[in-house]
Simulated scan of single mutants.
Amino acid sequence: MGSPLISVTDLHELLGSGPGSVTVLDVRYRMGGPPGRPEFEQGHIPRAAYVDLDADLAAPPGDGGRHPLPETGDFEAAMRAVGVRDDRPVVVYDDWTGLAAGRAWWLLRYHGHPDVRVLDGAWSAWVEAGGEVQTGAVLPSRGDFSARPGQMPVVEAEDVLGVAVLVDARAPERFRGEVEPVDPVAGHIPGAVNVPTGTNLRVDGRFRSAAELQALYAAAGVDGTESVAAYCGSGVTAAHDVIAMELAGIRAALYPGSWSGWITDPSRPIA
Results as ranks from 00 to 15, higher is better:
8 V>R: 03
71 E>P: 08
120 D>T: 13
127 V>M: 01
81 A>L: 08
58 A>Q: 04
121 G>L: 06
136 G>H: 09
41 E>A: 15
11 L>C: 03
42 Q>G: 14
122 A>S: 12
121 G>Q: 06
76 E>C: 04
27 V>S: 07
75 F>A: 05
135 T>V: 15
87 D>T: 11
8 V>G: 02
62 G>D: 12
67 H>A: 14
89 P>G: 07
141 S>M: 01
100 A>W: 05
49 A>K: 01
136 G>L: 09
50 Y>F: 15
114 P>S: 09
121 G>R: 03
76 E>T: 08
137 A>S: 14
104 A>M: 14
37 R>I: 12
58 A>K: 05
79 M>H: 08
42 Q>E: 15
136 G>M: 13
77 A>Y: 04
10 D>L: 01
93 Y>C: 05
96 W>K: 08
28 R>E: 05
125 A>S: 12
103 R>F: 11
79 M>F: 04
60 P>F: 00
106 W>L: 07
15 L>H: 00
57 L>W: 07
125 A>N: 06
87 D>Y: 10
45 I>C: 01
82 V>F: 15
47 R>A: 01
55 A>Y: 02
8 V>Y: 01
127 V>E: 02
32 G>R: 04
20 G>C: 00
96 W>A: 15
126 W>P: 00
126 W>F: 02
84 V>T: 11
94 D>Q: 10
98 G>M: 09
37 R>L: 15
71 E>A: 15
23 T>A: 12
85 R>M: 09
137 A>E: 15
66 R>F: 09
28 R>A: 13
35 P>F: 11
18 G>Y: 09
57 L>V: 13
102 G>P: 09
49 A>N: 05
79 M>E: 10
24 V>R: 01
79 M>R: 09
51 V>L: 07
44 H>P: 06
133 V>Y: 00
64 G>L: 12
66 R>E: 08
125 A>L: 06
59 A>E: 13
82 V>I: 11
95 D>N: 15
45 I>P: 02
52 D>N: 11
30 R>S: 12
79 M>C: 11
55 A>K: 14
9 T>E: 13
141 S>P: 02
49 A>R: 02
17 S>D: 06
116 V>L: 05
66 R>Y: 10
99 L>C: 11
115 D>W: 03
29 Y>Q: 07
106 W>V: 11
134 Q>I: 01
100 A>D: 12
35 P>W: 10
69 L>G: 00
38 P>K: 14
87 D>A: 14
27 V>D: 12
141 S>C: 01
69 L>R: 11
66 R>L: 13
129 A>S: 08
17 S>E: 10
93 Y>E: 04
16 G>H: 00
62 G>V: 10
119 L>Y: 08
133 V>L: 00
33 G>Q: 09
74 D>H: 13
53 L>I: 07
27 V>P: 08
103 R>I: 06
45 I>G: 01
96 W>G: 04
75 F>H: 10
138 V>H: 08
42 Q>W: 03
